[in-house]
């Protein structure tokens, strides 16, 4: 009887810990509202800002979950998003067609993702290092696209109608629904989790590492393409610095959202969304509190770092190992 009670307690504890990212998001929302009331902020503008600033990251990060589930990571996502936005912007300027622009964005990002994955698969290269190389190549490609006709930017006009939160939310909902379906209800997701959890075992059961790695990069590529499209719509002027923060913020977002960096069966497709919105709300809170303080930007970053480590620590309490993790 005692053993049953202990097991129940333990599984309750595990459940609470696994909910830490969601609890964290709720706490941040409460803090945001409380501080916002005290500071008398414009809540409508505030919530719009949070959505506007979170959605692109959430979409790209949701697609990237497929790569992280395999225990790999891709450091070139930001550069890929920029190339996608540049290609889409140039096509829109040439044709005036939004549909073509969207297709181009997705095609460009898929091409970049496939190069990474195929290189890694065919030549047995470590995926992370391949993506480091791709990051340099893609940055150079985007620079060529931006400065190709002289000047330092690609200016896109006529898309202001698409720059609203409902369009973004529609993209987010549809893409997330597709990802959730593939990740949770198809063998693609199951096999990717198996590969991430125990690659040797998975291989021995006949799961092809190369096939599912390529599929993961394809899913990520679609996410990057949609993110690139929304970036082009939002920014309206694309320069070499556009989307520069996406690459590393994806790591922060998905880990903040409870995704184990080693991937495997504990991977959560919703981690990207929770993490993306959490870090943006945290940024908003820090902006409200510290904007008038000297050196505020540095202090805000220190607070973000501590918060990030604390959240990840709490969220991973279920998975402590005797040895140091690698």
């Amino acid at each position: 009887m005692d053993k049953v009670k202990t097991n129940e307690k333990f599984s309750k504890r595990q459940k609470l810990i696994s909910l830490t990212p969601i609890i964290g998001l709720v706490i941040l929302l409460i803090l945001y509202v409380v501080i916002g009331i005290i500071k008398d902020i414009n809540f409508k503008a505030g919530f719009e800002a949070i959505v506007n600033q979170s959605v692109i990251l959430a979409i790209v990060a949701t697609g990237a979950i497929f790569i992280f589930t395999l225990g790999s990571f891709d450091i070139s996502l930001g550069a890929s998003t920029l190339v996608s936005a540049c290609a889409g912007g140039l096509v829109y300027n040439a044709t005036g067609s939004v549909a073509l622009m969207l297709l181009t964005c997705v095609a460009a990002s898929l091409a970049a993702s496939l190069v990474s994955s195929v290189l890694g698969s065919i030549f047995n290269l470590p995926v992370f290092v391949t993506t480091v190389a791709m990051m340099s190549v893609l940055s150079a490609v985007s620079e060529m696209l931006i400065t190709g006709k002289g000047g330092n930017q690609i200016r896109i006009s006529g898309l202001s109608g698409l720059e609203n939160i409902w369009v973004k939310l529609i993209f987010l909902v549809i893409f997330t629904a597709i990802c959730v379906f593939v990740f949770e209800f198809t063998k693609v997701g199951r096999r990717q989790k198996a590969l991430g959890g125990n690659p040797v075992c998975a291989k021995l059961t006949g799961i092809s590492v190369k096939t599912y790695a390529i599929l993961a990069f394809i899913m990520a590529g679609v996410g990057i393409g949609l993110g690139g499209f929304l970036t082009a719509v939002r920014a309206s002027t694309i320069t070499s610095g556009t989307a520069s923060d996406i690459g590393m913020n994806i790591f922060i977002a998905i880990v903040f959202g409870g995704m184990p960096i080693s991937g495997g069966p504990r991977s959560r497709i919703y981690a990207a969304i929770i993490g993306s919105f959490s870090i943006r709300i945290l940024s908003q809170i820090l902006t409200m509190l510290l904007a008038a303080v000297p050196g505020a930007n540095g202090i805000a970053q220190i607070v973000r770092a501590i918060f990030f480590l604390a959240m990840v620590y709490l969220a991973s309490m279920n998975y402590r190992t005797k040895m140091l993790p690698r």
């Binding site: 080693s262 000297p294 050196g295 930007n297 990840v312």
Partner: peptide
């Protein structure tokens, strides 16, 4: 913290960058 080192290094990078900025008042 016994977190994967890639995670702790991201946190430490943010922390130290913030400290460098704060110490010099930007």
């Amino acid at each position: 913290l016994r977190l994967p080192p890639i995670i702790t290094s991201l946190g430490v990078a943010l922390l130290y960058e913030g400290l460098a900025f704060t110490i010099t008042k930007g």
